[in-house]
Design a protein around this nucleic acid. Structure first.
Length: 414
DNA sequence: AAACCTTCCAACCGCTATCTG
DNA sequence: ACAGATAGCGGTTGGAAGGTT
């Protein structure tokens, strides 16, 4: 009883039916076997807060860490209500930390890692157990469009949801939903637009063999590989945005540094041969990847949004943060097409406009809300800047084509 | 009713980063 | 510096539940 009194009302609301079920099952079993109830450990002193999350770098076992468990002899598979009750009781009285010792102390024949996952993904009191709301759905879609399958980052933006929840919801619902709507779940572009863009790539099968590339199964595989590549490119940005200590201005500076040291060399070395860019409706889209590669996976890569932000906003033309008038109007690609039965084609993208002040606020608020910079700043690009950039790359492309015609004019047949 | 198929998600796997002795 | 451990993460899978034939 003392255990229950230490739970918050919301946690109580979640757990009471669960515990009732546990006790009923145990009671029913005890009637059959004449065994007594399990005795839940009752804490001697209430925790100061619930859940008492472990402090970072907290030293739990100063004498060295024993092996987690005997992997061969621990139970696996679905958790029973009794096991859940033991974890809950243990955490309520001891708090979070050193999952290695939890199975032994809680009386469980489970691996510590399994206990941790059970707690993290299911038993945590702050978790929601109801369906995803349309708002959460939009949030997932928008974040996935921006940062890809970084489930833990996305989950952090959705209180009460775990990365596993988000991942499962994406894989079972959202991916199919987008596909049905004619939208590629990786690039978040309409398939029709992808077909069009693939067809524009020089040296691509479209000129000789039509769009066969996109008609066979290899296309899907290529897109997934491209997604992986995109995530590698984006990593420095995630690292930066995850660093909550950064001042907004510092963040901007680091964006520039990352761009110079990593993104630009990467981009120009890999994408110089025959990249394609398009600028429509003021939102610049481009694809990069070596068309001379035998890997169709690298032919089309949606660029990391921060690249756009950095290239066009934080670079030469980026005004001081005090001078918002010079910030071009932001074009934000929202995800409202989800609630629209019609398939958005080229007109998609300009669903919400951010003005200069909003962009500035976004940048200035990045310390508290860092992914906002990604989402909004990423789309800052004027069509003129995009056009000049496109021209520069196309010129570079032509130059490369003249130098390496034997590579770039290969006839691709996947 | 039975067999088969599809969907869904909890749990696991394997990897990397980080910590400790 | 190194080995051995955990935490955290994204990808994958097993099997229960529901639907279809």
């Amino acid at each position: 009883m003392q255990l229950l009194l230490n739970w918050s009302p919301s946690y109580m609301h979640f757990m009471l039916p669960h515990l009732l079920n546990v006790f009923l099952q145990i009671y029913a079993r005890s009637l059959k076997s004449h065994h007594h109830y399990i005795s839940l450990p009752v804490q001697s002193s209430p925790p100061t807060s619930f859940p008492p999350y472990r402090q970072k770098h907290q030293v739990i076992c100063p004498m060295g860490r024993p092996p987690c468990c005997d992997k061969a002899n621990v139970k696996r598979g679905p958790w029973t209500p009794e096991e859940d009750a033991k974890i809950l009781a243990y955490v309520a009285s001891h708090g979070i930390g050193n999952w290695t010792s939890v199975p032994q102390k809680a009386g469980l024949n489970r691996c510590g890692k399994s206990c941790r996952l059970r707690w993290t993904n299911y038993l945590r009191p702050d978790l929601k157990h109801d369906n995803f709301t349309p708002e959460e759905e939009e949030c997932i879609l928008e974040l996935h469009r921006t940062i890809g399958s970084r489930w833990s980052l996305i989950a952090k933006r959705l209180p009460g949801r775990t990365d596993n929840d988000v991942k499962n919801y994406w894989n079972t619902k959202l991916k199919k939903k987008l596909t049905k709507m004619g939208i590629d779940p990786v690039t978040h572009k309409p398939f029709s637009q992808l077909f069009s863009e693939y067809g524009k790539i020089s040296g691509f099968p479209s000129t000789r063999n039509g769009n066969r590339f996109l008609q066979n199964s290899a296309a899907n595989e290529s897109i997934w590989k491209a997604e992986n590549n995109r995530q590698k490119i984006q990593k420095p940005y995630y690292d930066l945005l995850n660093d909550q200590k950064n001042h907004p201005v510092e963040t901007v500076t680091k964006f520039q540094a990352i761009n110079q040291e990593f993104i630009q060399p990467h981009f120009f070395s890999e994408a110089s041969s025959s990249d394609t860019f398009s600028s429509s409706n003021g939102v610049m889209h481009f694809s990069c990847g070596p068309s001379h590669s035998c890997e169709p996976s690298q032919v089309h890569i949606v660029p990391p949004s921060p690249f756009l932000c950095n290239e066009y906003v934080l670079g030469d033309s980026f005004p001081s943060l005090d001078n918002t008038d010079q910030i071009p109007e932001c074009k934000y690609m929202g995800m409202q097409y989800l609630h629209n039965d019609s398939i958005p084609v080229q007109e998609s993208g300009l669903i919400h406009n951010f003005n200069g002040d909003e962009c500035r606020e976004t940048i200035m608020s990045c310390q508290e809300n860092s992914p906002g910079v990604l989402e909004k700043c990423s789309s800052i690009a004027t069509s003129s800047a995009a056009d000049s950039f496109v021209e520069a790359i196309l010129a570079h492309d032509n130059e490369m084509r003249l130098q390496f015609p034997h590579i770039l004019d290969e006839n691709y047949d996947y």
